[in-house]
Design a protein around this nucleic acid. Structure first.
Lengths: 214, 214
DNA sequence: ACCCTTGGGAAGTGCCACTATCCAAGCATC
DNA sequence: GATGCTTGGATAGTGGCACTTCCCAAGGGT
């Protein structure tokens, strides 16, 4: 198919597709002659993934490029590849390691991982952005003066571990290795907004149950 | 305290504070004379909340204003107030109701709420942005061709309901009514990045457990 | 009286995700 | 084979957002 058809079938304007091509989010089509290029179903699939990452996952364009680079990198093992792709995802600003709240949050998270027995995660601690995000989130909460029981973190962590098990079980059902990594990334990216939406819905539901609409 | 001190204690530049004042994210200080205004601890607390919403919660400035407007609106009941505040939070673009994937997702979510027995959430269906976000997330996943068992949604929803119960239990521990709403909002906003970070950490952990670092 | 500080407002900055315009090279039709 | 529409690639421009810089008049300390 040509650019115009790719645009039609994806619902993305040709101008935007050209932009994505320029930014390296899509591989160029097969050049037929100086003015025509041919795209296939794979391009369409990739384009939809990109669009979804940007619009639903709110992933910046530069980050999408990084994530895809890792997804397509056959030289990496699965965990590393998934990790690499996830690590490229949007991050909170670099925490100020001098800050007392940050240091306390570090200790708190380390303790949490210890209690959970997440030894693998602990091994990745120094480099995982997820770890950093968690530290920043906890430090922020503490800085605002909320007195948050570490038990609560533990409970949340156990819930999210259950979610992760569901995620990976789902990925297991997918046959090819390449597809597995893509599915894992898609899962990581799209399950998050879903969990968020479910979380808010559940809050509304539970709040209404407890307090009615008073 | 004066603007300079407010800036110092919050770590936010005076220029930015002035910007927030202009945007209505902070109430003006008590004017002492033409060149001096006095701010109090409440301003500091509010400023930290605003900063955290913007930096950690990635909430747009205009949205922060909306959320705070609801938090401060004493005329509303708690559920409505919390709901109103949460409804102002970042939303996915309006779904195209004509689209087949969207319509299917609607049916899927309705079925899900039915099965869960979330009758309150069902009552809010037509207006809740969380519901809309969920529909868009599911439709996107389906459009990408993932064959996702509705059972899985159910499992995720139950997990998030447990999280919501934890959230509200935590809110219960806070004394004043006004503080409860603020805590609920803070919880909704800050628990989300935390859950997200925990989710990614858990994925890394679980992936490493299953596949090692192959 | 002098000068530094203060708060307020207007205008500017940098980044980002597009989007509009231009252009030369096809292809289609007459 | 001339004409005119379409195509893909390149370049520059747009609009929104979160600040940030600049300027100013009015205080207040010494």
């Amino acid at each position: 198919m040509r650019l115009a058809e790719l645009s039609e079938r994806s619902g993305v304007s040709t101008a935007t597709i050209k932009y994505y091509l320029r930014e390296g989010l899509l591989t160029p089509g097969r050049q037929i002659n100086a003015t025509t290029a041919e795209y296939d179903e794979e391009h369409l699939r990739r384009l939809r993934l990109v669009r979804a990452m940007i619009q639903v996952g709110r992933v910046p364009v530069a980050t999408v490029r990084e994530v895809l680079r890792h997804v397509d990198d056959d030289s990496l093992g699965r965990t590393i590849r998934l990790g690499a792709a996830l690590w490229a995802l949007p991050q909170v600003p670099e925490p100020d390691e001098e800050d007392e709240h940050i240091r306390a949050a570090h200790r708190e998270v380390d303790q949490l991982l210890e209690t959970l027995g997440w030894s693998n995660a602990r091994a990745l601690v120094t480099i995982s952005p997820a770890y950093r995000s968690l530290v920043v989130a906890i430090a922020t909460f503490r800085r605002l003066g909320y007195d948050w029981d570490p038990e609560l973190n533990l409970a949340y962590a156990r819930l999210m571990h259950q979610a992760a098990v569901l995620d990976l079980d789902f990925v297991e059902t997918h046959p090819s290795e390449a597809e597995k990594v893509e599915t894992a990334v898609a899962g990581a990216i799209f399950v998050e907004p879903m969990l968020q939406a479910l979380h808010r819905l559940a809050q509304e539901e539970e709040s209404a149950r407890r307090y009615g609409f008073e």
